[in-house]
Simulated assay, not measured.
Amino acid sequence: MAPLTLADELVLLAYDDTGVNRLGRPHLDYGLSGAVLLELALAGRVEVADDRLAVTDPTPVGRPVLDDALARVAADGKRRRPKDWISRLAKGLPDRVLSGLVDTGVLRRDSDRVLLVFPRTRYPSPTGAEPTAETAARQRMLDALLADGPVEARTAALLGLTRAVGLDRKLFRELPKERLKARTTEIA
């Protein structure tokens, strides 16, 4: 299995062990768009210049969600701000990321009806326990929060994303609020 993207890790962190989105929309949608843009920046495909997103290398990275976003940014004749791309890329992104995790066996899709009327789809782990990739991401972030000094770029990006969408306090309830806020500000 290919390494997970930041979007994959954010989805795993946003869904609880029963497969329910504890973050809600549009927070998850926008967070995933940010994760895609950060992943492209870390891969050296885009950068922010003069407050606008610019493609520096249009070569696909080999991940459909990322390649689609890169192609859309490259094909747009107008240079836009990153926040403009967040809303443009958000539509349908959670479903695509979740489908990718289902296809690779990290999650499973359970569909049913509530009160026999309202459709509901949940995305629990196939084993019923927290996926190992989620555990690893959570531990990586916790280690960074508890340590001092520089943090690896992917971990810093994931911490920034969780803070931006309001997931950090849900993930790290055991840490003092002041420590969490100070350290995430320092990492950002």
Rank of each mutant, 00 (worst) to 15 (best):
M1T: 11
P3N: 08
P3A: 10
A7Q: 08
D8A: 07
E9A: 09
L10W: 02
L13P: 08
A14G: 02
Y15M: 08
D16C: 05
D16Y: 00
V20E: 10
R22H: 01
R22P: 00
L23V: 07
G24V: 00
R25F: 04
P26M: 02
L28G: 01
G34Q: 11
V36Q: 09
L37R: 05
L37T: 01
L38S: 10
L38T: 00
A43Q: 12
A49L: 15
A49M: 12
R52A: 12
V55W: 02
D57S: 12
T59F: 00
V61D: 08
R63T: 09
L66N: 06
L70A: 05
A71Q: 14
A71M: 07
A75S: 14
A75G: 12
A75W: 10
A75K: 12
G77Q: 07
G77H: 05
R79S: 11
R81E: 14
R81D: 13
P82K: 13
P82C: 09
W85L: 08
W85N: 03
R88K: 13
L89V: 06
L93K: 05
P94E: 07
R96C: 01
V97Q: 10
L98R: 13
G100W: 04
G100R: 14
V102I: 12
D103H: 04
T104A: 12
G105F: 11
V106I: 14
R109M: 12
R109W: 04
D110L: 15
D112S: 15
R113Q: 13
R113D: 01
R113T: 12
V114A: 13
Y123M: 09
Y123I: 05
P124N: 07
T127Q: 11
G128F: 07
G128I: 10
E130D: 06
E130S: 15
P131S: 09
T132A: 15
T132G: 01
T135R: 15
Q139G: 06
L142G: 02
A144D: 11
L145G: 06
L145S: 06
A147S: 14
G149L: 10
G149D: 03
V151Y: 04
R154D: 09
R154A: 13
A157W: 07
L158Y: 01
T162C: 14
V165A: 00
R183H: 04
T185I: 00
E186V: 05
I187T: 01
A188E: 12
